[in-house]
Simulated assay, not measured.
Amino acid sequence: MKLVWSPETASKAYIDTVKSCEVFDESSVAELVSAMAAGWNAQLVVETWSRGGAIAASIGLSVAIHHTGGRHICVVPDEDSRSEYVEAMDKSGQSPPEVVVGPPEEAIKGVEEIDFLVVDCRRNDFARILRVAKLGHRGAVLICKNASSRAASDFRWRSVLDGKSRIVRSVFLPVGNGLDIAHVGAAGGGSGSAAGKGQSRWFKHINRQTGEEFVIRR
C-alpha cells in the first residue's frame, strides 16, 4: 500500500479551509496544506508549534482530518505554548487536536506511522525533528513552512533524512513565507521514476491575495 492522491477530497478540503480562514490575512499556506493532507488521505498528521506562531495552518490541517477521518497531533515545547495553542484553536471554531508537550525532537519519537508532517524552519531543531520522525509504511509528505527564512541555505532533503527514506519528488513553493515539500515513497517501493509513472496528477493553487497561480505535478 502507498499514499494515493484524491483530487476530489483535496478540493473539498481546500474550499472548506478557505471558508474557515476568511478572518486571516494570509491563509494561502493553510489552504494548500489542507488540500494536500486531505488529497493524500493522511491518517496521521503531525505538526510542531510554539508560542507566537501562526494558527492558520493548524486550522487547515484540522479541516483535512475531518475529510480523512485520521488523527491530528500538535507537538509543542512547553505548557505555555500548549495553553496558547488550545485557546487560539478554540477561538477559531476548530476543535484542538491531540497536543503532545515536550522538546519536539524527543516528543515526536513517541509517534509512529506519520504520513503527513509539518515543521517550522524558523526553529533551529526542525532538521533534527525530520531525522527522528517515524514515517508511515505507505510513505509520507513532509512540509517545512517559513522555508524562505531558513538560515541553513545548504538544506537538502536527502541529507536531512540520512538516506533512510526514498525521496520520490520535492519542490519549493513561494507560498506564504515559503514551503519546502518532499514526498517520501512507501517502504519497499521501487524507484521514484517507476513509482510515479502514469500516476501523477496536476494540482493547482491560487494565491488569493496576489492572484498568482501555482501548478504542481504530484
Rank of each mutant, 00 (worst) to 15 (best):
E112H: 07
S95V: 00
E106I: 08
Y85M: 03
E84S: 15
D78K: 11
V76P: 05
E31N: 13
A30T: 02
I55R: 04
G102A: 10
A42W: 04
Y85E: 04
R71C: 10
H67E: 06
A54R: 12
P96C: 07
D80H: 13
P77E: 12
V76M: 09
V118Y: 04
I55A: 04
S81M: 05
S83D: 12
F116T: 02
I65S: 11
M89L: 14
M36C: 10
R122K: 12
A64S: 14
P103G: 09
I59F: 06
S92R: 08
A42N: 11
E79V: 15
A107V: 09
S95F: 07
M89K: 07
L61M: 15
V76G: 07
Y85C: 01
S50C: 02
A88L: 12
G93L: 09
E105G: 00
R82A: 15
H67K: 10
I73M: 07
P96H: 14
D80V: 13
A37L: 06
P77I: 09
S58A: 13
S50E: 07
I114F: 05
H66W: 03
I59N: 05
I114W: 02
K91M: 08
V86K: 11
V119K: 07
E31C: 15
L32T: 08
G52I: 02
L32C: 13
E106S: 11
K91V: 08
I114A: 00
S95Y: 11
I65A: 09
A57M: 08
P96W: 11
S62I: 00
A38K: 07
M89H: 05
G110M: 00
E31K: 15
Y85V: 02
P97Q: 01
Q94N: 08
R71M: 09
P77M: 12
D80G: 14
